[in-house]
Simulated assay, not measured.
Amino acid sequence: MKISRITPYFTFFLSLLLLASCSKDESTQADPTVANKQALGSSARDFLSADAFTSLRVEIAYVAGFKPSATTLNNLRSFFAERLNKPDGITFIETVVPATTVGSLERDEYVKIEADNRTAFNAGDELAVWIFFADQSSEKDDATSRILGTAYRNTSCIIFEKTLRDFSNRIGGASLTQLETVTTEHEFGHLFGLVNLGTPMVRDHEDEQPNDDGIDALNKHCDQENCLMYFQTVADATSSAMTGLPTFGAFCLEDLRANGGK
């Protein structure tokens, strides 16, 4: 058994063998959404601390019929409350996105879906984040690997809900809530700057895995096997054998707290 190579922190690949940015135009106004179109990990401290943002607005976007379970959303609320310093509160809003018709989704397509449908953006001392639960799989899926979720900007991520449901519906598959919770929280770990992705490491614990050339390379995951940010944790969540939901390990918690989190 093997997990397919993780490309640098943008996506999480699951091996089926496991179950399987001229001149200035003075008339043009600044884009009010630009603060939410930055590099992955660049808003890590904004999430974790109350330095710049004292509240968080979480936009849960989904295609009708692909809404995450109520238990998953409750787990996510608890996850945020436990780790983020947001004294003015954390608000969840929901946005129903039209069904996609392009088949499997590539980055340009889900970025456009976000551009067409996102309503929550940073405003004053409120930070906003977009999570899209898609009705399609990733176009990078192939015969040996599947992508379950991707954090792709500072306040954006996609969860391939159709893929999660495919795994859950298999004989011996994990519960959908387990898959949704572990995948979503893992991707938020990347938004929070883990590992070594906007949140500095207090001590070295970034994992190495072979790259395309078979050479060990750092991959923005944790080298502690009991951690939510370990590269294989999301893959393990596809199995009904997982007992309990994984959490951040001691080294990742140390990093989060040093960068303003709880």
Rank of each mutant, 00 (worst) to 15 (best):
R153L: 15
Q224T: 14
A123F: 10
F192M: 13
L48P: 08
E225P: 13
D236Q: 14
L148I: 10
L105V: 09
I215A: 05
A143N: 08
A99Q: 12
A174F: 05
L18Y: 10
N117T: 15
A81L: 12
D25I: 11
G172F: 09
I171Y: 06
S43M: 06
K262W: 13
L228M: 07
A44V: 06
A61K: 03
G89D: 05
D116G: 06
I6W: 01
T199D: 08
A151H: 05
D135K: 03
F121G: 07
A174W: 04
N169E: 11
F80S: 06
G173R: 03
L84F: 11
E114K: 13
K262P: 13
L245S: 05
T33N: 11
S145K: 07
A115W: 09
P246Y: 01
F192H: 04
I90R: 00
E185G: 05
A64P: 04
E254M: 09
E208A: 08
R57T: 14
T181C: 04
F12R: 06
T163S: 14
Q209P: 02
C252K: 03
H205S: 06
P246K: 02
G65F: 06
P210M: 00
K2L: 09
G198V: 08
A134C: 04
T184V: 10
F167H: 06
F10Y: 12
T150Q: 13
A35H: 05
A61C: 15
I6L: 04
N196M: 01
D116F: 02
R83A: 07
R257K: 15
N196C: 04
E114F: 11
S42L: 07
L197C: 10
T11C: 06
V34G: 03
L18A: 09
L73T: 10
T54Y: 00
Y9E: 10
A99M: 06
R57M: 05
C227A: 08
T243W: 01
E180Y: 02
P68C: 04
E82K: 14
K86A: 00
D207R: 03
E185W: 04
F248Y: 15
F53W: 00
I131L: 13
N154G: 12
F188I: 10
S168H: 14
E206K: 00
A81I: 07
L84P: 07
N36R: 04
Y230N: 12
G214R: 02
L19S: 12
T33I: 03
